[in-house]
Each structure stands twice: as C-alpha cells, then as structure tokens.
Amino acid sequence: MADLLRANRREAIALAVLLALLTVYLVTHPRGMSTYVMTIWANQCLILALAAIAQFFAVIVRGIDLSVGAVMALTNTVASYVLAGSGIGLAGGVVLVLLVGLACGLVNGILVVYGRIQPIVVTLATASVFVGLALLLRPTPGGQINYDFADAMTLDVLGVPTALIITALVIFGFWMPLRRTGLGLGLYAIGSSEQAAFQSGIQVPVIRMASFALGGLFAGLAGLYFSFVTTTGDAGIAPNFTLNAIAAVVLGGVALRGGVGSLIGAVAGAFILKTIGALMFFSGLPPLAQPFVEGLILAAAIAIGGADILRVRNRLEVFGR
C-alpha cells in the first residue's frame, strides 16, 4: 500500500485535498449532502474535468493546447443545432458533435507534427479559427437541446449524480485500459524524452497525432456536456475554460514539462478548482472579489507548473557543464 501511494503520490495528494475541500463545502452548504447539491456540484466539475483531460493529452507529450476552450465553444454551438430532435437523429447529433471535436484535434496534430510548429503557436492560431466558426453558428447564445436527454445526462441514477458515473466510466473504462496499451506507454515515453522514444522504435509522429486527436475528442465531450447542462449554445465560453483547464492539470500533479502525471490527477485538479469556486460562493466573500481570488489561484497553479519546468531546465544545465 505504501509503495502504491509513493508511486502515485501526486494523485494521492490531489485526491486528499479534494476530499477535504468537498467535506468543508458540504458542511457549509445550507442543504448539506443532498442529491441535489451533489448533482449540481458534479455537473459543474465534470465540464471542467473533461476540458482538463483534453489539456492533459497535450501536456503529457510536452505540449500545450490553447484551443481547448475554442473546441468546446464550437462543439457546443454545433450541439445547439443538432441535439433538438429525438431517437436516431439525436444519436447521430451526438456522434457529429464528437466528430467535430476529433477533427479539430486532428487539425492541431497535423500542424504540429507535419508543420513542425510549436503546439502553443498552432493551438493559439486554430483557437481563433474555431471560435470564429462558433460565432458564425451562434452570434448570440441560443438554440435548444432535447430536454429529456439533457436531464438524463445531468440528473442522477438512484441518488448517484450521472456526472459522477460518467467520471468513473472515463477513468475505469477508458484511462485504466489505455495507460497499459502501446499508445498509453508511448504518450509517457515521448513526454519523458522524445529522442529516447524514437530510438526505442516508438512511432513518435503517430503517438503525438493521437494525443492531439484525443485532446480534441475530450474537448468535444466537454462542449457536449456543457450543452446538456445549459441546454443552449454559446460561442463565448472559450477563454474561461482554456485557462482553467491548464490550472486544473497542474493542481492535479501533471507536470507541464511532460511525461509526469495522470488523467486521474487532471480530473482531481478540475474538481478541486470547481470546489474552491463553490466554497467561495458560500463563504460570504463579496461577489466582486471572487474573480480576483479565483485569478490568484489560477496564477499560483500555473506558476507552480512553470517553476517545475525551470527546475528541470536548470538541472539539465548543471549536468551539461
């Protein structure tokens, strides 16, 4: 048990912090630990968690994706057109939304791999394109999502918030199997040392492309779930989620230098960030001061990640001498 905790200490710390914050939140909430309170909390956390997972797949291979929020905005606006129906049409709409997210990720991957351009530059450029497309689709918030479907995805099953069930499915049904595959191991190998990964026979371009494609897919999932929660399309959601997704992965113990951390940590970091926001709402802090405090938390999280990169670079410089 001790060895397991040591090997996953970053995730263990993030989960311990989350548990402490959630306990304080439930104690201070006027309605306590009710299904309603847990469902509202879980819905907000899952949106950011999916965005953080999208960012995780870029960061783990020593990249950064500034288009996460933009892909969310685009898929959210697409969803507001194609998810108003029912039956097969509704299922087809969900597939279309996810394909849009996947396509955005593939565009980023192609430009990074074959254009040999730094991910931060590529995704900054594509973010503008994706937001522009979202604004063309929805100049003002609007549209409609099938309410019954949205309720099924955002309420609860036998008292357990659907959002928490989806979170568990992503972790145990997707991440746990993936991390043991060649793709999962390749992501960490490239993040640790791209040259060593290449010399080991790993298809670096393919793995890097896959990482951005997965990032686009999960950003699309985040936009889709945002659609379920709000039941409308809004092209203006991009900036908030991009910055918060970066902060979430850092809070969850994912190193911005790549190769360290896990999807579980990214999810925990997102839940931590949203729980802090919820705590501030009930803390009596003046509403105008809340964005300031949230900004300080985000800046501190990103500064920690940046300091981690600088420490590694300094260490390499010492060894180089």
Results as ranks from 00 to 15, higher is better:
297 I>Y: 03
261 G>P: 02
12 A>P: 09
44 Q>H: 09
122 V>K: 02
134 A>M: 14
87 G>C: 09
96 L>E: 04
271 F>A: 10
239 P>W: 13
184 G>A: 14
293 V>R: 00
216 G>C: 13
194 E>F: 06
28 T>Q: 08
42 A>P: 04
241 F>Q: 03
54 A>D: 07
280 M>Y: 06
143 G>V: 15
101 G>Y: 07
226 F>V: 06
72 M>Y: 09
217 L>R: 03
314 N>Y: 05
86 S>I: 14
236 G>W: 09
219 A>H: 08
299 A>T: 13
153 M>N: 06
85 G>L: 13
277 G>D: 11
230 T>E: 10
26 L>C: 07
139 P>D: 14
13 I>Q: 03
135 L>C: 00
266 A>I: 15
4 L>P: 00
107 V>G: 01
218 F>R: 02
298 L>N: 06
44 Q>G: 13
298 L>V: 15
186 G>H: 07
135 L>Q: 12
4 L>T: 14
9 R>L: 15
96 L>D: 01
161 P>E: 11
164 L>D: 03
19 L>R: 02
248 A>W: 10
154 T>G: 03
168 A>Q: 01
40 I>F: 05
99 L>C: 12
168 A>G: 06
283 S>Q: 09
8 N>I: 09
154 T>Y: 04
12 A>M: 13
132 G>W: 11
177 P>Q: 13
242 T>Y: 13
286 P>A: 09
310 L>S: 12
264 I>F: 13
258 G>Y: 08
315 R>K: 12
293 V>Q: 01
43 N>K: 09
45 C>I: 10
71 V>D: 05
170 V>S: 00
106 L>P: 00
115 G>P: 02
71 V>E: 11
184 G>F: 14
123 T>E: 04
183 L>E: 01
28 T>M: 14
295 G>H: 08
194 E>N: 05
293 V>D: 04
261 G>N: 08
4 L>V: 14
285 L>R: 02
203 Q>N: 15
116 R>K: 15
120 I>P: 00
219 A>Y: 07
94 V>T: 02
243 L>C: 04
60 I>W: 05
66 L>Q: 05
229 V>K: 03
106 L>V: 15
305 G>S: 08
280 M>S: 05
282 F>S: 02
213 A>S: 12
223 G>N: 03
42 A>M: 04
265 G>P: 04
33 M>P: 03
85 G>E: 11
316 L>K: 07
236 G>L: 12
314 N>K: 11
201 G>D: 09
10 R>V: 13
145 I>Y: 06
151 D>Y: 14
229 V>Y: 10
17 V>G: 01
86 S>F: 13
67 S>T: 11
298 L>Y: 05
56 F>E: 02
61 V>K: 05
63 G>L: 07
309 I>W: 03
58 A>F: 13
249 V>H: 00
78 V>R: 03
12 A>R: 01
253 G>M: 11
245 A>D: 06
320 G>Y: 08
306 G>H: 08
41 W>A: 10
109 G>P: 00
120 I>C: 01
173 G>H: 10
37 V>K: 02
319 F>K: 02
146 N>I: 15
38 M>G: 02
121 V>A: 06
84 A>R: 07
